[in-house]
Design a protein around this nucleic acid. Sequence first.
DNA 1: GCAGCGTCTGGAATCGATTACATCGCAGGG
DNA 2: CCCTGCGATGTAATCGATTCCAGACGCTGC
Lengths: 340, 340
Amino acid sequence: MSGRVRIVDVASLAGVSTATVSRALSAPETVGRATRDRVMEAVRATGYRVNGAARDLRQQRARSLLILAPNLANTFFSRIFSAIQEEASAAGLAVQISDSRIGREKLVSLGYDGRADGIVLLDGAIDPDVVNGWRLPMIQLCEWNEAYRAPRIGIDNAAAARMAVEHLADLCHRSVLHVSGPDGNVLAVTRREGFSDGVAARGIAGTTLAGDFTLEAGACAARRWAELRPRPTGVFCASDECALGFISECAALGFGVPDDVSVVGFDDIDFAHRFLPALTTIRQPREALGRAAAKALVNLLGLAQVADPGDPAIAPTIVVRSSTAPPPTDDSRVATITLD
Amino acid sequence: MSGRVRIVDVASLAGVSTATVSRALSAPETVGRATRDRVMEAVRATGYRVNGAARDLRQQRARSLLILAPNLANTFFSRIFSAIQEEASAAGLAVQISDSRIGREKLVSLGYDGRADGIVLLDGAIDPDVVNGWRLPMIQLCEWNEAYRAPRIGIDNAAAARMAVEHLADLCHRSVLHVSGPDGNVLAVTRREGFSDGVAARGIAGTTLAGDFTLEAGACAARRWAELRPRPTGVFCASDECALGFISECAALGFGVPDDVSVVGFDDIDFAHRFLPALTTIRQPREALGRAAAKALVNLLGLAQVADPGDPAIAPTIVVRSSTAPPPTDDSRVATITLD
DNA sequence: GCAGCGTCTGGAATCGATTACATCGCAGGG
DNA sequence: CCCTGCGATGTAATCGATTCCAGACGCTGC
């Protein structure tokens, strides 16, 4: 006995009206004790579950939030999704996910079909007209776009990049390479700016190669790096994936990390501390980020009792491991240092 | 002009009834040419989008499928989610995700609230009463449970494990270790069985250590392995994560892979081919698996025109890379071989 | 000229809940 | 004793689409 039980079935079994059943379930204190017990018993007996579509239609909300990410296959998002879903679930919300590259028409519909109450945007490259056309509460997470009319949550990417440069400079590297993300990407641009600022501040030489955050981009950058003269002794990759690709290809080319070159990553993905060598990297607290975004969205939806101020805990930190060390001390380098 | 446009607004602007607007949108061929054009123009002018909740209620379906996974933070699922979402999107379905450990009550609701038309189950450890209580089309993917009344899609885990053993045996390893998943898990159990079978078939020595698929489990297993006498020269880990943890800890203990010990993983995650050494592993075609599951579910929902037979392409393969090699030829081993 | 048929369109029921408003009974104050 | 007020409950409107059914219209063929 289940599946197609409606509220009228419960009502007739309990000998009350549907209004009373509805109230007994959603506002128990407004229903008399005896009646409530009778209703609850009928609910149990029939196995009744409210029909979401009917409730959503009547209440004009979907009890659901939508996550839009530029590539669901990217493992970087896993922990963020997990955190968002936990928070959402706690607030009684379901979680819908979609790749943001499903095509303009479908994308527009997603924000319009009334099946999500709010959106977590992990993509800063969607057409702003589409995004601003949605009349839903939104939060930008990690990536962002100035044109979107929505609050942002994320780390200070420029500061994070500067930390990486600082670290390499502190180890006495005088020439560093940045393997960045693609030109159009805000994260890539901001981290590159931070890199440039850091390099300028420390008076060291900085070079940039554009990549796209992937393993292959890192490997490709390693081959380019090997041909540079003089070769930078420190490398800052815009993502851990990229850094691992770089290190892996270095090994194939006969270079050791950190003996021949120091490498700093970005993100602190799960594997970073188990890579060989363990990767020095900028930690993005992904779980905290996801949680903060979900909380902020729940707040915007007016579902939270307590409004908490912006979480100050979302700061990037550098995690120093074994992929960075002082630069190799070959003759030319010693000579250079002596000249200073 | 948008957001709160209803079908009646479009109808009155176009000077037709709501029935006609509805038909013009969902079955254009049943509406006269002139009328259809007028309706479409009104749709454009008003920016009308159908209300999903209303349509779902009337049609008694949600145009949405639910993915249930035991841990959304597990990066293994990323590619699967991505593939499922692609197929679902192509079939006009939204994708909802949930961690399957959200608590029994919430879990029961998920399958009952009418907001999903079908479920992709990636968890074989949910209470069968809950799962079988759902009256929705379901597909079990990767993990499974005999008690669930739902078709399964996944690789042959026992055969896959045997392939790993074969590979090690072919390299002349005579004593191999299996770092398995946790006891209750079907994947762990099946792979362990395959391991045992393989070992027996080749007449070599096999030992098993229970882990839980994680990096740390692999690292822990490495420490245990180092204390074994004699030490197995080949290791088959039940997941790539575990294998990477094992190799990483081996390095910390002063053992080299594959010089001192050969390691085979399972899954072929993205990093496997870039790890140092590149990991020999059993490839699970995750994208194909996700795609097949989504297609099968779409078929069950009766949304597909063509029913395609079970995809035979979903077979595990072994990808041989650099983490496996013949066993080290120390004296004791040479002696043993000589005795054969 | 008319029956018969096919095409297009509109009226109204329907999906299943929530909720504004009305009603009823009873307790307490004037 | 009547009236007010309040708590508990029922009646019916409502959310916004889809779809059954029937009617209008134009043609064809006899």
